[in-house]
Design a protein around this nucleic acid. Structure first.
Lengths: 248, 248
DNA sequence: TCGAATTTGTGCGTATGTATC
DNA sequence: GGATACATACGCACAAATTCG
C-alpha cells in the first residue's frame, strides 16, 4: 500500500480539523512556518497542502495575515410551485428564502431594452435579434452579495403593458406579473450546472479567486410558450438548491 | 493596474484555447518543458498554472504521459413528474436519460436489511435504529461509472410485500413500486449541494483526484410521509440537472 | 525484452514582493 | 519601522509512470 504524499496528508488533517469543528469558520490555520515545523516538511509542501483546501473552497488566504476557514453556513434556494404562485401580499422568492435563514434580503436591478442573442433567442423561441427586456439583478443577504441573475422577457409579449418594466409594477414575480396581463404561466424548467467562477463573478459576488458557482438556466412557459428566461449564478458551497416536485 | 501573476496568465491562455476548441477533449497540453520555453518561466510557474486548470476540472494529468483536456460533454439528469409516474412499460429514469444521450445505461445494485442512522432516520421520519432496506447503486453509461446512489426505505412499510426488495419485482422505480402496495407517492423533494469528492467516490466513479461532485438528497413522500430517501452522487461538470416544475 | 528518453508527481531550499499587524 | 505572513517565482533533485525505439 503506497503512502499518500505528504501534502495530501497535511491537507486531510486540516480538512478533518475543519469538518470536526476543531477549526471553526473564521479561525486561522497554523502559519506556514508552524506547519513546516509541525510536519517537518518544506514550505513547498505546506503551500500545496493549503492549495488543495483553497481549491475545495473551504479556506481562504489573506496575504500578510493568514489562511482562514471560510464560512460554510448554507443558504437554501427553494423552487416549488407554492412559492412561485404568489398572491397580492407576495414578497419575492429570494426575500422569503433570506427571511427563512434569518437574513435581510435586498436587491439591485437594472432593466433595459435589448436584443436577443442566439442563445437567448433559442431559449425564448424567438428570432435572434428580437427585442427583449433585459434585467440584471444583484441580490444581497444582510448587505452581502449572494446571487446574480440576468433575466430576459420577449417585448412582443409585454411591450406597452403595465408589466413591461419588471420592477416598476405592483405585481412581484414572473408568475404574478404575467397573470396581470392574462398570461397563465404553467411550468418552470431549471437546468443546474457547475463551473469555475469568472473574474467578473468573483468581483460581483466578493468571492475568493478560483471558486465554483452553480449556474441555473431558468425558463418560465405558458402553454408551452416561453415567457421569461434567466441566467442565475450562485456561489458554490454557499447554497443548497431545493426542488419540490408534485407527482400526479 | 497590477499585472496578473504569470501562472494565472498561462492558465488563462490555456483555458481560452480549451474553451475555443483549439485544444479539444482528449488532446494533450504542451509539456511542462514546452510551456517553460514558450513563456520563459520556471517549472514552478507552469505547475501552478496547470494546477489551476486541474482544480477547475477541465484538464487531467497522467504521470509519465502528459496533461490532457477532459471530456466536457454533459449528461443530463431529468427530474419531472411525467418521468417519475411510470407505467408498466417503464424503464428506469436513469436508463431513459442515458438513451436520450445516445448511451447505454446499466447499473449494479446491492440490497440488504440495515438500520437507520440518525441522519436517515430524520429524513424518513422514523426512530434511529429502525429497520430499513438499504440499496447501493452504481450506474454506468456505456460501461463507464457515472453515478452513485444509496437508497433507504422503511421496512415498516415494505417488509413482507412483493416490493420489499427494490430490484426484484416487476415494478420499476419508487413511484410504481409503492403504487403496487397501495401507497400513492405524491411528492419528491431534492436538495442539490456541491462538495469535493471523497477518495471512495474518486475510486468508484473513476474520477481524477480532487474533483467536485453534485450531491442530491432525494426524498419521496406519500401524503406527507416519507417512503424513500436516497443520497445521489454525480460527478460535477459531467452532469446538468434539469428540474421541470408545474405551476398551479 | 530492455533500456533510454520523456513527462508528470513530489519535494527541498531560496529569494523577493507586498499586505498585515 | 520592524516582524510576520502569504503570494509569486527560480532552480534543483529524485521517483514513478509512460513511451518508444
Amino acid at each position: 500500500m503506497p503512502t499518500p504524499p505528504a501534502y495530501l496528508t497535511i491537507a486531510a488533517d486540516l480538512r478533518a480539523a475543519i469538518l470536526s469543528g476543531e477549526l471553526s469558520a473564521g479561525s486561522k490555520l497554523p502559519s506556514e512556518s508552524g506547519l513546516m515545523r509541525q510536519y517537518d516538511v518544506s514550505r513547498t509542501v505546506v503551500k500545496w497542502a493549503v492549495a488543495v483546501l483553497k481549491g475545495e473552497g473551504i479556506v481562504e488566504g489573506r496575504a500578510g495575515s493568514g489562511v482562514y476557514v471560510r464560512d460554510t453556513t448554507r443558504l437554501v434556494r427553494h423552487a416549488r410551485a407554492r412559492d412561485l404562485r404568489t398572491g397580492d401580499d407576495a414578497t419575492s422568492p429570494f426575500a422569503r428564502d433570506a427571511a427563512r435563514a434569518g437574513q435581510h434580503g435586498t436587491w439591485e436591478h437594472d432593466s433595459r431594452h435589448s436584443k436577443a442573442d442566439e442563445r437567448i433567442a433559442a431559449r425564448l423561441a424567438v428570432e435572434p435579434g428580437s427585442p427583449v427586456m433585459r434585467t440584471t439583478y444583484r441580490f444581497l443577504a444582510d448587505d452581502e452579495p449572494i446571487q446574480l441573475s440576468t433575466s430576459y422577457e420577449p417585448l412582443a409579449l409585454t411591450a406597452g403593458t403595465p408589466v413591461e418594466w419588471p420592477e416598476e409594477g405592483a405585481a412581484v414575480g414572473v408568475v404574478a406579473r404575467m397573470d396581470a396581463i392574462g398570461v397563465r404561466v404553467d411550468e418552470v424548467v431549471e437546468r443546474v450546472s457547475l463551473r469555475a467562477a469568472t473574474t467578473e463573478e468573483v468581483d460581483a459576488l466578493d468571492l475568493p479567486a478560483r471558486t465554483f458557482v452553480h449556474t441555473i438556466e431558468r425558463t418560465y412557459t405558458a402553454g408551452g410558450t416561453p415567457v421569461e428566461t434567466a441566467d442565475i449564478v450562485l456561489p458554490g458551497g454557499r447554497y443548497d438548491l431545493v426542488y419540490r416536485i408534485p407527482i400526479d
